[in-house]
């Protein structure tokens, strides 16, 4: 088995001091000691409902939240709270809300160039601009976006720009915190397809946070189901979806709203003269 890229051991996060009148009742145990590891090139999902601790875990991995207890190691070495620049570069994040995750007053170009320059990934300004344009190509956005501010873009486009920003520094791990749940249905698919393509083309390792098992099914290899700050089940996505072992996973699966299968022969030609080719599905 390959060495894991990300290894989380006994991670716990507690909010509130516990001092004062409420005693321990004032404390919120968001994450109660969880273990998981993500292998290089793998897409690993944390699934749960609101308050399950999945987003807090993501923030710990991205360095935005200090764990109360436990350790996170990356590529074999421990990540301490004050990460060095190299460690910060290696773990990037895509956020849920495309409307608040881009600085409204900065052009897309300026934001990308800033990150590239700070990490010394471009020798000159011109090189940084060129690289920024390539990043837009990568996520399927027009280069003219460089001179635009976020308000010029729709939710789906902003999410693509958020992905471009995360990829600017060539991360080895991408933490995606519910990246499509704020988007309209028809836009979700295009962002999921983008993430899948990046996964395949760049060999990106991904920690994917979601409440939606159907979305996880599209993108991930393994999944850990979280409830109340604990991991209740972990395994290959196909296995967890078809033969869940934890009660909570079964509840979650039963609650998932599914669509009846389409009863259309989509391979029929547009003007239905002749079938183009028979479906193999």
């Amino acid at each position: 088995m390959t060495e894991p890229l990300l290894e989380v051991r006994d991670l716990a996060v507690t909010f509130g001091s516990g001092r004062g009148w409420g005693g321990d009742r004032g404390r919120i145990h968001a994450v109660r000691g969880i273990d998981f590891s993500v292998r290089p090139g793998e897409a690993f999902a944390l699934v749960g409902e609101s308050g399950s601790g999945k987003s807090t875990t993501a923030k710990c991995v991205a360095g935005l939240q200090k764990p109360t207890r436990g350790s996170i190691s990356f590529a074999g070495s421990p990540l301490d709270p004050a990460r060095n620049r190299e460690q910060r570069r290696a773990i990037q994040m895509v956020f849920q809300d495309p409307y608040s995750s881009l600085n409204p007053r900065m052009t897309i170009g300026a934001a990308l160039v800033e990150i590239l320059r700070v990490h010394r990934l471009a020798g000159s300004r011109a090189a940084a601009v060129k690289r920024a344009a390539e990043l837009l190509d990568l996520v399927g956005m027009p280069r003219s976006a460089l001179d635009q501010r976020p308000r010029a873009f729709s939710g789906g486009q902003r999410q693509r720009l958020g992905v471009a920003r995360a990829l600017a520094v060539n991360p080895s791990l991408l933490v995606a915190d519910e990246p499509v749940s704020a988007l309209d249905v028809s836009i979700q698919a295009s962002v999921l397809l983008l993430l899948k393509r990046l996964q395949r083309d760049l060999g990106l390792t991904m920690l994917f946070i979601s409440h939606d098992l159907a979305v996880v099914r599209q993108l991930c290899d393994r999944v850990a189901v979280m409830a109340d700050g604990r991991i209740v089940e972990e395994g290959a996505v196909g296995r967890v979806l078809s033969e869940p072992s934890a009660d909570f996973t079964r509840t979650l699966l039963a609650a998932a709203t599914d669509l009846p299968p389409l009863d259309l022969d989509l391979d029929l030609d547009q003007d239905h003269r002749s079938p183009k080719r028979r479906s193999t599905r």
Binding site: F95, Q96, N103
Partner: peptide, 24 residues
Amino acid sequence: DYVLAARVSGLPTWRILGRHILRN
């Protein structure tokens, strides 16, 4: 999120304060 994003991007604190937060 955009401030969190700037932190994840590894920008120095003074830069986040000046170029990102203060401007907004």
